[in-house]
């Protein structure tokens, strides 16, 4: 890892502040993420809709929710390269699928999913490549001060996902004429036999994931980076290396350190 190539201003931040940086990071990465993100999310939507049209309504929704760690690992893959100004294109991402598709896919989807600090934990496995006990120990250190914030992020995102859903329904309700839906509840809770209502629900849920998940992953990632910065003083290392480099280049080597007067 080349610390001096990093695009983030490393400093010791508040945990909340570190998460906010994730939003800003995602904003700058959005153009390079969009195509790969659509490439994975559109086929997923197509599969789920196909399942639902064939009668597997709940299975479809469950799959969409269950596979979230897989979409997330793509986002993290692009982010972790993007902060070093390396933006992998769609071709490179598809060819190098082994690099980002999680190796322990069973644990990723079923076990680690249960942790509320998921986006904070993800880099430990995916970027550091730690497994088993080593991973557990690492997480213990990382979680020491940050567990509540990492959990909070997931809980907030859970609410946001639901609110985006509600907002999309609200938008639809404002836009359609009264003849089709007399009250908000008519479109929000369609009859069980009404397949169009179910598809609408799936598409809105998919849209919420599509909008929110990159920000969730990015914020967890910047929180993780902040914790590492704190533990390993990356920002200080960077400043010291710059200083050493400058001293090397400067001609004035008349620094009289050992003879400095002791004023204590």
């Amino acid at each position: 890892m080349q610390l001096d190539q990093i695009n983030l201003n490393l400093r010791d931040r508040y945990p909340w502040e570190a998460m906010d940086l994730g939003i800003k990071l995602m904003r700058t990465m959005w153009p390079s993420l969009l195509v790969p993100w659509l490439l994975i999310m559109l086929p997923v939507l197509a599969c789920i809709l196909f399942l639902q049209l064939n009668g597997y309504i709940l299975t479809g929704l469950l799959l969409l929710w269950l596979c979230k760690p897989i979409y997330d690992s793509l986002v993290l893959h692009i982010l972790s390269r993007g902060i070093f100004s390396d933006y992998p294109g769609p071709v490179r991402i598809i060819k190098g699928w082994r690099q980002w598709l999680p190796t322990g896919i069973y644990s990723t989807i079923f076990i680690w999913r249960l942790s509320l600090a998921r986006s904070f934990n993800m880099p430990v496995h995916q970027l550091e490549g730690l497994k088993g006990n080593a991973r557990k120990q690492r997480l213990r250190i990382l979680h020491k001060k940050y567990a509540s914030h990492a959990n909070g992020l997931t809980i907030i995102c859970l609410h946001f996902e639901f609110l985006i859903n509600l907002t999309l329904y609200g938008l639809l309700f404002i836009l359609i004429p009264k003849e089709y839906a007399a009250s908000f509840m008519d479109i929000f809770t369609p009859a069980d036999s009404d397949i169009s209502g179910i598809i609408l629900n799936t598409v809105f849920y998919w849209l919420a994931i599509f909008i929110l998940e990159p920000f969730y992953v990015a914020s967890g990632f910047t929180l993780y980076l902040n914790r590492r910065t704190q533990l390993e003083a990356w920002d200080i290392e960077l400043a010291f290396r710059k200083m050493a480099q400058r001293l090397e280049h400067s001609k004035q080597h008349d620094i009289n350190y050992p003879d400095a007067e002791n004023i204590a």
Partner: peptide, 22 residues
């Protein structure tokens, strides 16, 4: 305390203080 050698700019001095603080 020790005197700092001359020729260090503000940012570099701040880095040394940050190191001590953390």
């Amino acid at each position: 305390a020790l005197h700092l050698p001359p020729g260090l700019n503000l940012k570099e001095q701040q880095a040394i203080i940050t190191f001590a603080e953390r």
